[in-house]
Simulated scan of single mutants.
Amino acid sequence: MVAVLVFFALNGVVFGSWASRVPALAAQIGAQEGALGLSLLGASVGMIAAASVTGRLTASFGARRVLGLSTLASAAALPLLGLAPSPLALGLALVLLGACVGTFDVAMNVAAVTVIRATERPMMPIFHASFSFGGLLGASGAAVAAFAGLPPFQHLLIVSGLVVVALAVFVRQVSDEVRPAEAVTTSTGPAAFRRPVLWLLAGVALFSAVAEGASADWSALFAAEYRGMSEASAAIVYGVFSIAMAVTRLFGERAQRRFGPERLLVFGALVGGGGLILTALAPSAVVTFAGFALAGVGLAYMFPVALDLAAAAGRRADGTGGERELGFVTTIAYSGFLAGPPLVGGIAHLSDLAVALGVAGMIACAIAPTAIAARAAAKREAVTV
């Protein structure tokens, strides 16, 4: 269990390290906002492409092997961002890094499912809390590097070295599911596209990604330009959202045991969506802090619980399986991270950012009926099997 928690944290460290150096990378390639935005899309494109096949890779070769290789590949790709001389080169480097991290992401979630089944504990939110804290650690390290004047290449090379060391220490402690030979060769992938429950769970993850992306990408700008906060205070708004999400995930096992995954999704959707809508409607700095905190609390469980249910939907009679189903839902969710920022930006361009955040809040609220429909679909499948 500890080893898998470490890999979730490492994934967060990799993401937080490069994402926090975007201003320095923009200066490095001399890009304006438009060209930089196109370059940054490369990471999402790579992640979507990789997630669509990683479920099959882990089913064939085991999560530990795929996790180890993808972590090593992520460490190798990370410093390349610091060598990119142009927007095109940065975009291509991000496609490569996104593919490595996307594979890393799905493999670590499959490894987490193995731990959950072995311990019979609903720990997926706790694993994702480790990712959140890893992201905060990566961002903190990036801030220190920027303050010290380290260029992105040197900073990211140091991060890569630390990731490789952690990989060498912990990779052998990651367990693979023990499966009979016939289970390995049994194909369940095509069934994912024909199962309503998986499309509905993918919808939960997709809506969560859009709302989470809107909160992460636009909270500071909204606080500064629409609520009159200073740049420092606006940055704290994003920190409040991130920390609220990370801390809430630590209590995920207890919450899931008490309320069940479906109720947790419904309740969280209403809290998170309500927080964003409240923020959009109330012209108050205090409410802005409270609204984004509620968004962090409410959205904390959406993505990990959806993945947990997807893996459960793919579980075979021998207790194994779910890799392809988890990969399918993850792929759909990544499209939300890709489409979310331009969606919010487009609505803000046509109206204003408050309206756009309100729409993101309504999308988050839509998780509630989608989760209820997913539960009904799962019950229908159980009856027909």
Rank of each mutant, 00 (worst) to 15 (best):
L265H: 06
A59R: 15
S230A: 03
A107G: 12
V110P: 05
N109F: 06
R380L: 13
A368T: 09
A312D: 09
A50C: 10
D308E: 13
S215Y: 01
L97R: 01
A24V: 06
A31K: 00
P125M: 04
A244E: 01
F328M: 14
G135L: 10
G346C: 10
G141K: 03
T71M: 03
A202N: 01
F153E: 02
G340L: 08
L5I: 05
A9P: 08
G345H: 05
A76M: 13
M229W: 13
S86V: 03
A295L: 03
A89S: 14
V110D: 00
L38T: 07
L69P: 04
A224F: 14
I29T: 10
T188C: 04
A202Q: 03
A364M: 05
E120K: 15
A31F: 07
F15V: 11
V271H: 08
E323A: 13
A293P: 09
R380D: 08
T370Y: 07
G345W: 09
S233C: 03
L81D: 01
V159K: 03
P304Q: 14
R375E: 11
V297H: 01
L83F: 02
W18K: 05
S86M: 02
T54Q: 13
G213H: 01
A143S: 14
L201E: 09
M108C: 08
A99V: 00
A146F: 06
V14Q: 05
A142E: 04
V163C: 07
I363N: 03
A234P: 00
A24I: 07
Y238M: 13
Y226C: 00
L96Q: 08
P341H: 06
G213Q: 04
G30T: 13
G358S: 07
A371P: 05
A377K: 12
G322W: 07
G37H: 02
G319S: 10
F337L: 11
L350K: 11
E323M: 08
I126L: 15
V359D: 09
E262Y: 12
A139L: 01
S233H: 14
G239Y: 04
A73P: 10
A24F: 00
V110H: 05
V286F: 13
S44Y: 12
F147A: 14
S187D: 15
V113H: 05
A205V: 11
F303I: 12
R227K: 14
L250D: 02
L78D: 07
V240H: 06
G358M: 09
V95A: 03
A356F: 10
G161W: 09
G358V: 07
F259M: 12
A9W: 04
A205F: 09
S74I: 04
M1I: 12
R56Y: 07
H128W: 09
T103L: 06
L307Y: 13
I158A: 15
S230E: 02
E212C: 07
G68V: 08
F222P: 02
P152K: 00
S187H: 15
F337D: 01
